[in-house]
Design a protein around this nucleic acid. Structure first.
Lengths: 214, 214, 214, 214
DNA sequence: AATGAATGAGGTTTCATTCAT
DNA sequence: CATGAATGAAACCTCATTCAT
């Protein structure tokens, strides 16, 4: 791994652990055992590191969520989506802890972020529509759209919400799975009669995940 | 209003407008037209101002949500609760937007916050149970409890989520009312048949609020 | 006791306990339960409090040391002098911890202090000469004068020296009596043959004092 | 000389000249023509500068006084010791003048200082015993030990005592040499008959030093 | 006598960033 | 690529002192 990548990953790690505000560029350099000058050789300022982390985030997001064209969704796909979502939120949790500040300081980042959100909104709507087509869910277009937004909201907000409830902000995997359960609970009234058993299976699966050594 | 209170309210205003991180103690003093020394006469450091704002928040929250014993809920009560949620989110939006950082930096605040959350969880469950008794909602105990948690989650997480979607990061009242709509949408499947018209009234009311000058 | 006197004595106490530098005028007022404004009603600045403490010191010093004219010194007188000296050093120990800074900041105080030192030098020389006349000690004038200066030096420096050796700077009475023993040791070679037993008595007396619960 | 060392030496100079309390970190930086940030690049706070000066002091003290095993002492050695004492007092006079405040503010420094004092006590006793073996001095073990303590006391306390006697608080070299003379005076009764001339030589030498431009 | 809010200069420290090597 | 000393603006905070009441 090149120094530039090491800087990105170490920064991400430190930001997640202690918050972007408390981590100075010197901290990052020290953690890596490089000089601050070297850090600034690779990045012209701290904001650029954050932008690179954001790019990483976008890349992972796109690879996980871009819907595969006209594909019938199976149960497996759904769990994949949910797992991938929370994986993502977990990996970039510092961003969600301070999104407002982060974006306020960097117009370029803000624009990128908001474009991404629009895309995401589309994808999640697409997924919900596919789930309806596959007769997992039922509901009119408006309801499905609103439901898609709810799911997107839960995914985006869960970690921040949970971290705040926990001493030291330390979140555990089981706590993450409770977020998946929250999504299931929100979808539940819209599950079709014929897919009730599928709902039960999913629910039981994630209850188990959420119970592990909590 | 005493200087001490002026400091609290001016700080809250500035924090909401421009973010806690960008507002220095000198900014606050300058905005008030007092000397920095005077500010430090009333508060021994910046963190203490934040704590006082938090106390204000707790006070408003308690006065809005502490359930009145064995009370039959009317439509008015429901709007009161929803409006109160909205008011809180709006008035203390910087806190919602920066919660994790604020708690990470101040163990005392974290403890207070988490104690408050436990209380809030009880209150919101009580309110949901009351709504069921008043035949607005229906569902078994577990469902009502989960629903209560969903509502609490939406209130607690809405600003962090929304503020990041907005150009310039500015949170507007209409966007907040969309949070109220999100709550309604989440409750919707559990509204009883006899209260469907009530749901409609509420929905229309808040749709209007959310549309204003958006 | 009037407020003015209370301020002086409380300041002396706090200065001794924690050092003049660390004690602000607000600390003094708080300890007394009065307002800072009131403190400044009685003293126009912090330095004036210090000057008043110094006046107290001078008064106690003069009452203890001004030699009684043409009086033959007995053993009792000597012990009285020594005991009084250390009592004094103990009571005003903060002054000795920072004499240089104290005087550097206040020309008036410096002048007073130096005048006092000259007087003291005379008194201690007078006492030594009287002791020689009383045949306790022997030695030529120059030796007696130098010896007087040594005694004065030990008295003035002992507490500061001892405090520095002890954890937390806390000095005990037994440690003070070791200072008296140091004076005796310095005088010892000049005790006359006929007063050797007197030396022994004194020595034993202060050894006992110095041993108590050390 | 590196910047770090320059900071130490400039601080020492300024502290000696005007007192540690009056010298701010900005003063030090300005005197050196560097930025305050640079000073804090080399030292994390003012106290650390003081600690480094203390380390310098310890180093010089050790190199001057650590006794050479089974060595016969000549007159030269004696003057070396006395001159070294004088040099130490002069070079680190601000420390001697402010010892109690310095130690009161810094527990780590206090511990180091007190450990050093124990070592010093041993060294000074060793030196005195060597002087007796070399027939400069005579006296039983207890007397030599007490004498060693007296010498240590004079070195440790002289500046605090003398600095306060002087107009303007300025410590001058001649005044310090009087401290050496005070040591000699204290040792005098214990010089052997055969080394009386050595005493005379030493005395005359330091009288001359003490008289220069007093 | 006494209050206590208010002042403001100035102290210590931080940190993103630069630049000669 | 890399170093690490250096910068300087600005943050937080202190405290002796003042003054209207």
């Amino acid at each position: 791994m090149k120094t530039k990548d090491k800087i990105i990953h170490t920064s991400l790690k430190l930001f997640n652990e202690r918050g972007e505000r408390q981590i100075t560029t010197n901290h990052i350099a020290a953690e890596l055992g490089i000089s601050p000058g070297n850090l600034y050789y690779h990045f012209s300022n701290k904001q650029e590191i954050i932008r690179s982390i954001f790019d990483l985030y976008v890349a992972q997001l796109e690879s996980s969520f871009r819907p595969h064209a006209d594909q019938r969704l199976s149960l497996e796909h759904l769990t994949q989506y949910l797992d991938a979502s929370f994986e993502l939120m977990w990996r970039f949790r510092f961003m969600y802890a301070n999104l407002l500040e982060l974006l306020a300081r960097d117009a370029e980042l803000e624009q990128k972020y908001q474009a991404l959100q629009l895309e995401l909104a589309n994808w999640s709507r697409d997924i919900l529509f596919q789930l309806r087509e596959s007769r997992f869910l039922s509901g009119d277009d408006a309801t499905m759209a609103e439901l898609a937004d709810s799911v997107k909201f839960i995914i985006g907000a869960w970690i921040g919400y949970q971290s705040a409830q926990l001493k030291g902000g330390e979140i555990t995997k089981p706590r993450l799975y409770q977020g998946v359960l929250k999504i299931l609970f929100t979808l539940r009234p819209y599950f079709t009669d014929e897919s009730q058993n599928i709902y039960q299976d999913l629910h039981q699966h994630y209850v188990k995940c959420a119970e592990r050594s909590e």
